[in-house]
Amino acid sequence: MANGRTSLRERLTEARDKIWGSQAVDSILRPGSPFKQNYSDSPRNRSYVVMNNVLYHLHPVKVKRHAVKLSYTLCLGGLSFFLFILLTITGIFLMFYYTPSAETAYTDVQALSTNVAFGSLVRNLHRWGAHLMVLSVFLHMSRVFYHGAYKPPREFNWVVGVVLLLLTLLLSFSGYLLPWDQLALWAVTVGTNMASFVPAIGAQVKFGLLAGAEVTASTLLRFYVLHVLFFPFIIVIFMAVHFWRVRKDGGISGPL
C-alpha cells in the first residue's frame, strides 16, 4: 500500500481468505483438516486429520513407529488397494466404449485404441495395472509370510487374504477374455482346461465359468458381467473386512 492503493497481491490474498473463511468451505472441511484456514500443526490436529476424514479414517490415529519404515510393509498391501482403485477408474472409462458381444467386442477394442482420445493409454493403464496388481498382491502375501504376520491374532486375516488373492486372479482372468482376440480366446481356453483337471469339481467349475463346455459368445457375456460387476463387488467386501481386521487385530504386526 505504498502508493495508497491496494496491490493486486493484497487483493488476491484478501479474496483467498474470504473464500477460505466462508461458511461453505468451512462446512466442507472438517475440524482439523490440514486444508482449513489457520491449520496449525499440533498433536491434536494431527489426530483430527485422520479421525475427521472419511477416507483417511481407514488409518488409526497413530501407528507403531516401525510400521512407518518403508522397509517393513513396502506398502505392498496399500499399493494393491491403490491399483484396485486405479483399475476401477480406468475400467469405468473402458466400459463406455465396449460392448460385450462377440460381434462387436473386438472392433470396439480396436476403435478404442485408435479413435478415442487417450483410449490407448487408458487401455494400457488398465492392462498393465492389472498385471501389477497380481504381482503386488502376491508380493504382499510373501512379505506377510516372511514376517509371520499371520500368527495369532491375525490368522483369519490371512484366510481373508487368500480369498483376496483368488479374487484378484479371477478378476484378471475374466478380463483377459474381453478383447476377444486370439490371445484372449485361447489363453482362457487353456486356463479353463486346467481348471477342469481339478478332481471332482473341475468339470463343473469349467462349465459354470464358460456357460457351456467351450468358450462361446455366451462366455464373453458371462466373463464381462463377472469382471465388471460380480468380482469387484465381492472383492470390495473382502477388502473391507481385511482392512477392518488389520485394525482390530492390533494394527500392523511386528516389529520382528
Binding site: 498393465w128 497380481v134 482376440d181 485361447w186 467351450e214
Partner: peptide, 27 residues
C-alpha cells in the same frame, strides 16, 4: 503404459488354435 502397448491379435477364431497356446502368465 506409454512405452508398452497392449496386445491385440487377430479376432478370436475358434478354428485356428495358435501354436503354442499359453495361459495368462500367472497360470
Amino acid at each position: 503404459s506409454i512405452v508398452i502397448h497392449s496386445p491385440l491379435l487377430d479376432p478370436a477364431n475358434f478354428n485356428a488354435t495358435p501354436n503354442p497356446s499359453k495361459a495368462p502368465w500367472y497360470f
